[in-house]
Design a binder for these strands. Structure first.
Lengths: 236, 236
DNA sequence: CTCCGAGATTGTTCTAGACAACTAGGTAAC
DNA sequence: GTTACCTAGTTGTCTAGAACAATCTCGGAG
């Protein structure tokens, strides 16, 4: 099986894509000229162009008339950010892990209660996690969820499941979120857990997610390691 | 003027798009066959296909091999998600102003040239602005645009027009952008222009905008005053 | 050092066909 | 009736060029 005789433009596109992923070319490099590829693959010019068209559409390369075709990126762009997930969930193939620092049921303080539109007598589950990328601390996350949305969250094991998976299993779906981003100086506990000096500038985010009925479900605060940047994708 | 002799595949695409918008065909209808269009426009098969490719990419029509090309929609789909504007352009009604600090044509340094996928010999226009909200400095913006996209930008007056308005008038449209956000400590010139102490944590963003052909058009770096936070809206 | 021009390089557009893959519908055999 | 096959029509792929336009390189003039 598997000898399905792909159209040659797809074959060529596949080969080129693999070479990019393998690292034979890095962003900024110039690809072979179209005429060179015509010779190498023994096809017509239009076929090579057709193959490259796909790489252009995926944003992997850019054509510059009179100059060449240049590598922009060697992997398709990670979407992230505008998607309703924690940032660190998808970091282009790197190994993402996490360690739960705190997991308890508490009374919310004033800010949290107001954000979650709940009373000060209510109960919330607080969850503090260190997210790691390839083993090193990447970001710190503090999540508040009203007790009623996740009764078991204060004790259940989260090492295997993601928080969103957990909520989904509990029948809670997130519909949209607003996020506020700003920069802060690292406090002592940030610094300790992220392994940076105190006062290091950190990228902070405060996100409030809501369910389809517009009820606030989750307040998440994130502090990101300065080496980690956050990508946001925007469309017209 | 305006007789710029578009490539014929673009001309054909434009005619077909207009016919769709005019309502000559409604969703579900079959378009004329490629051979019919070849006759009607007096061009080669591949040229017609090239024209239709664009309509397919925009989701206006779908091709069904052996059957025909069918209308899906007569107007381009609204993209939305996050808006493609500088964040500070929209700050909920506050009076947003700006002061141009630097406006000049320069050779790009290495980072800028790579991001814009252009040669190191090329020219870019650099634009540095202080954005003010109700009179006080709110953010600092440094924009790089390849000279060819905005030949007059190095000298034209920008106080009245927004940069995006200017680009639109020059025939340059932005299709999408990626933005990277991170935190940095304020350097001396940041501090001076924003009126904060040196080393204050600033929210920094680097945004690369592209035109519909995926060519990088604008590299924008923004540093935001710590009192100002940036809102991002997310949807599932 | 800058400016300009000639030539080389590279992507862009277009032609006129050919064959392949697929669809829809009709016809003949069962 | 049902199935199998055939056929005309449609899009999909590909060729072997050719001319064109934008850009880069490099050398020479100022």
């Amino acid at each position: 099986m598997s000898d399905v005789a792909l159209p040659s433009y797809q074959r060529i596109r596949h080969v080129l894509r693999q070479e990019l992923e393998r690292g034979a070319l890095v962003p900024g490099d110039r690809m072979p000229t179209e005429r060179e590829l015509v010779e190498r693959f023994g096809v017509a010019h239009m076929t090579v162009r057709h193959a490259i068209d796909g790489l252009v559409r995926d944003g992997l390369v850019v054509r510059r008339r009179g100059s060449g075709t240049f590598v922009v990126r060697t992997r398709p762009m990670a979407r992230s950010a505008t998607r309703l997930q924690s940032f660190s969930d998808e970091l282009g193939g790197a190994v993402v892990g996490g360690r739960v620092i705190r997991q308890q049921e508490i009374r919310p303080d004033r800010d949290v209660a107001e954000a979650l539109a709940m009373s000060w007598n209510g109960r919330v589950v607080e969850l503090v996690r260190v997210r790691t990328v390839d083993g090193t601390p990447a970001s710190l996350q503090q999540v508040f969820i009203p007790f009623k949305f996740a009764p078991g969250l204060a004790r259940d094991d989260l090492t295997d499941r993601s928080l969103y998976q957990y909520l989904a299993e509990a029948g809670v779906t997130l519909d949209r979120a607003e996020q506020r981003m700003f920069a802060v100086a690292a406090q002592d506990w940030h610094a300790e857990l992220l392994g940076v000096p105190i006062s290091t500038p950190l990228l902070a985010a405060e996100r409030l997610s809501r369910d389809p009925e517009n009820h606030p479900v989750e307040l998440a605060r994130t502090w990101s390691h300065p080496d980690l940047s956050v990508w946001v994708e925007m469309n017209r």
